[in-house]
């Protein structure tokens, strides 16, 4: 119960943060940005407390609810960490509504809390979910950065500089940060896939079973590998940003298939 209240309040705070970031970007005022950051920090604390409280009630990482809540938590954590070094209000304007949507989905999913299967109860489960989801979160932030890059790049090419453009970070910052986020996200994602296949071996007796989420994850992994390879050989800017966004689409589809489509492990039963 406590956890539900905490999640509900954090949802409201995510909305406050989103409104704050948007008004900061449109009104050229600094106060809303500080309010938004405060709201986001508070929401993060509440989600943390909620996850902990929920943990005592039997946090399993096996239900959609737990996973969505965890992803929101990671996402906000990654953003807040980045925010320590860079002024990225515009990323906050994307991350806050995303965190809201994730928490809302978690809330809805809670009603029909489905357990992904007792066979997954193993020490390998957190070792799979934690890096994979942290990787997801970082890759989502990378995609936000790339999206903003494309926005900024288009304005500069078209020579139409709006007031909003001034609030956006420079192309250099966006490109560089997106690159680094993809690198970190990719590394964690890789660990997640490896531990995931070990988990599959332990739980279902096979390392790889070609179920949709695995195929999509593999595709996304290959795409990010390609992106990193091209980047290290001088690819950058618009093309790199577009590819990062393509990876994001694959990630979303794979995540949706995990949570709302085919349940993980169904292929083996």
């Amino acid at each position: 119960m406590v956890a539900l209240v905490l999640f509900a309040s954090s949802m409201a705070l995510y909305l406050v943060a989103a409104a704050g970031f948007v008004s900061h970007l449109t009104m050229l005022r600094d106060a809303p940005r500080r309010v938004a950051l405060g709201a986001l920090g508070l929401a993060f604390a509440m989600t943390t407390a909620g996850l902990l409280a929920h943990g005592f009630e039997g946090f399993a990482l096996r239900s959609s609810h737990d996973q969505l809540a965890l992803l929101a938590w990671f996402l906000v954590a990654v953003y807040l960490l980045l925010q320590l070094r860079y002024r990225l209000a515009v990323v906050g304007a994307l991350v806050s509504p995303l965190a809201f949507l994730l928490t809302l989905s978690a809330y809805v999913a809670y009603a029909g809390a489905d357990d992904l299967g007792g066979s997954l109860a193993s020490a390998w489960l957190p070792a799979h979910v934690a890096p994979a989801f942290l990787g997801y979160a970082i890759l989502v932030v990378a995609s936000c950065l790339s999206l903003i890059y494309l926005l900024q790049e288009r304005q500069l090419k078209a020579k139409k500089i709006t007031g909003l453009a001034r609030r956006l970070p420079s192309l250099e910052t966006l490109d560089d940060l997106s690159y680094r986020c993809v690198a970190w996200g990719f590394a964690l994602f890789t660990i997640g896939i490896i531990t995931g296949s070990i988990l599959a071996k332990v739980a279902w007796g096979t390392f790889w079973s070609w179920e949709p989420v695995q195929i999509l994850s593999l595709l996304a992994w290959l795409l990010y590998a390609l992106l990193l390879q091209s980047r290290s050989s001088g690819w950058r800017g618009r093309r790199a940003a577009t590819l990062t966004l393509a990876g994001f689409v694959l990630l979303v589809v794979s995540f949706l298939s995990l949570n709302f489509g085919f349940s993980h492990g169904s292929a083996v039963g």
């Binding site: 050229l28 500069l156 500089i161 001034r166 192309l171 250099e172």
Partner: peptide, 27 residues
Amino acid sequence: RTETAVAARAVSVGSAAVELAGQIFDR
């Protein structure tokens, strides 16, 4: 100065160029 954007933007050709450079480069 803090509550309006009266002094916020470049109004000469040279400073507009510097402002644009700042949109492209971080430093």
